[in-house]
Amino acid sequence: MAGCCCNEHEIASRGLQARQKRMLWLVLTINAVMFVTEFTAGLIAGSTALLADSLDMLGDTMVYSLSLLVLARSPRWKALSAGVKGTIMLGFGGLVLIEAAYKAYAGSAPVSVAMMSVGAVALVANIACLILLTRHREDDVNMRSAWICSRNDLFANSGVIIAGALVWATASVWPDVLVGSAIAVLFVSSGWGVLRDARARYRQAGQLRPDSSTA
């Protein structure tokens, strides 16, 4: 009976990993396409908020790639992957803050119509990703960190649309700068949260190892 139970557990685990893999490949593709779209639009429109959101898409593409690599790995590997994701989020947050500071000093108002239209497309894409990830967010720390990244995207996309509307109404650079900065702060805050969670899970996984008492 014990062997049968172990066999059933292994089959269930492989089935879960297969479902996670299909879902991660799908959201990875969506984010990669949207990164290229938003980055190009951000450069053409001169929008810090769009560029910030595109970097978020690039970060998510890297995040989902890491998640795929550690699907069949141990809890410690998954915790390490989550830690890398947190570091990526912190790094992109810092880059966006630098860009926002430069734009505030020497920038001009971006193309508001491009901000709103591309931001709306990105919002729809990320809603689809969040729906796909939600059913797996409690599977493990690896999947939860991926879900957090996708959830943050909704705030970022909504901010881009609002900034575009305010730029259109005021012809000012400041809505773009402020929203871009807010997205960056969100990256930094979430990155610290993911790093704390990953550290705790890594230590917990070490304590659960069979040889932890002799390590």
Rank of each mutant, 00 (worst) to 15 (best):
residue 1 M to Q: 03
residue 5 C to A: 14
residue 5 C to T: 12
residue 9 H to M: 15
residue 10 E to C: 14
residue 10 E to K: 15
residue 12 A to F: 09
residue 12 A to P: 11
residue 17 Q to Y: 05
residue 17 Q to A: 15
residue 22 R to S: 08
residue 22 R to D: 08
residue 26 L to R: 13
residue 28 L to W: 08
residue 30 I to G: 03
residue 30 I to F: 05
residue 30 I to Q: 03
residue 38 E to Q: 14
residue 39 F to D: 08
residue 39 F to C: 05
residue 40 T to Y: 01
residue 40 T to W: 01
residue 45 A to M: 08
residue 49 A to R: 04
residue 49 A to N: 12
residue 50 L to Q: 04
residue 52 A to P: 14
residue 53 D to L: 15
residue 54 S to H: 10
residue 55 L to C: 14
residue 59 G to S: 12
residue 65 S to N: 08
residue 65 S to W: 02
residue 66 L to S: 09
residue 68 L to K: 01
residue 71 L to I: 09
residue 72 A to H: 01
residue 73 R to I: 08
residue 75 P to M: 05
residue 75 P to C: 10
residue 77 W to H: 11
residue 78 K to Y: 05
residue 79 A to K: 02
residue 80 L to P: 02
residue 82 A to Y: 06
residue 86 G to A: 02
residue 86 G to R: 01
residue 86 G to W: 00
residue 88 I to G: 04
residue 89 M to D: 08
residue 89 M to H: 00
residue 89 M to E: 10
residue 91 G to C: 04
residue 91 G to Q: 02
residue 92 F to I: 08
residue 95 L to G: 08
residue 96 V to A: 03
residue 96 V to R: 00
residue 97 L to A: 10
residue 99 E to L: 10
residue 100 A to E: 00
residue 100 A to H: 03
residue 102 Y to G: 14
residue 102 Y to E: 14
residue 102 Y to A: 14
residue 103 K to H: 11
residue 106 A to H: 02
residue 106 A to Y: 04
residue 108 S to A: 11
residue 118 V to T: 15
residue 120 A to I: 12
residue 122 A to L: 02
residue 124 V to H: 00
residue 133 L to G: 07
residue 134 T to F: 14
residue 134 T to E: 12
residue 135 R to A: 10
residue 136 H to K: 05
residue 136 H to V: 06
residue 137 R to C: 13
residue 138 E to P: 07
residue 139 D to F: 07
residue 141 V to I: 14
residue 143 M to F: 09
residue 147 W to R: 04
residue 149 C to G: 12
residue 150 S to W: 01
residue 154 L to R: 09
residue 157 N to K: 04
residue 157 N to S: 13
residue 160 V to P: 09
residue 160 V to C: 03
residue 161 I to N: 03
residue 162 I to Y: 02
residue 163 A to Y: 07
residue 164 G to A: 08
residue 166 L to W: 03
residue 167 V to F: 00
residue 168 W to A: 13
residue 170 T to V: 04
residue 171 A to K: 09
residue 175 P to Q: 06
residue 176 D to W: 10
residue 180 G to Q: 02
residue 180 G to M: 02
residue 183 I to F: 02
residue 183 I to L: 01
residue 195 L to I: 15
residue 198 A to K: 00
residue 198 A to C: 04
residue 203 R to W: 00
residue 205 A to W: 01
residue 205 A to H: 01
residue 209 R to L: 14
residue 210 P to W: 00
residue 211 D to N: 10
residue 212 S to C: 11
residue 213 S to G: 15
